[in-house]
């Protein structure tokens, strides 16, 4: 029964992509027609450093099964050090998420450059696989009173 459920369920994953590297890499994947799973929904941000940890919590509350934050490689940040600031924030939120019971792998962080179309597709395929294995995220989902 569990298996049947798994088959029909498709995870929804929010990706925060920085405008200069990862979003450009995603565009290049499109231009190169490199195929990847259709489970992600992208929010374009100027820099990975723009991603407030609260965004990640809010996404989980809204029923996102996975979250990816992706920025420029270290040293390549369009804003010099925004991606380092993102990495520091991520280290902290990672521990918080563990504490509240969000499984490892559900929220990921990666570097993808504007030239790495193939890598972008790989990263998306990997997180989709990881999240599929973990199943739906229920831990923080807001019970809406309609």
């Amino acid at each position: 029964m569990e298996a049947a459920k798994e088959n029909s369920w498709e995870p929804k994953i929010i990706t925060f992509l920085c405008n200069w590297c990862s979003y450009a890499g995603a565009d290049l994947a499109g231009v190169s027609r490199i195929q990847y799973p259709p489970n992600t929904r992208t929010i374009r941000v100027p820099c990975s450093g723009r991603v407030n940890p609260l965004f990640i919590l809010r996404a989980l509350q809204n029923g996102a099964d996975g979250i990816l934050v992706s920025g420029c490689h270290p040293g390549d940040c369009h804003y010099l050090s925004g991606n380092y600031s993102a990495r520091r924030k991520f280290a902290v939120i990672d521990r918080l998420l563990e504490y509240v019971g969000i499984e490892k792998g559900r929220v990921q962080f990666s570097w993808v450059s504007a030239a790495e179309a193939g890598r972008f597709a790989e990263v998306i395929s990997e997180i989709t696989e990881d999240v599929k294995k973990l199943g739906p995220a229920k831990r923080l989902v807001k019970k809406r009173v309609e």
Binding site: D27, A29, G30, V31, Q35, P38
Partner: peptide, 20 residues
């Protein structure tokens, strides 16, 4: 962005591409 990050990369999956 429903082309570079949708129709072009989900060519074999029109239904889910439309949902996306």
């Amino acid at each position: 962005n429903i082309r570079d990050q949708c129709s072009w990369v989900h060519q074999s999956n029109p239904e889910q591409a439309t949902e996306k």
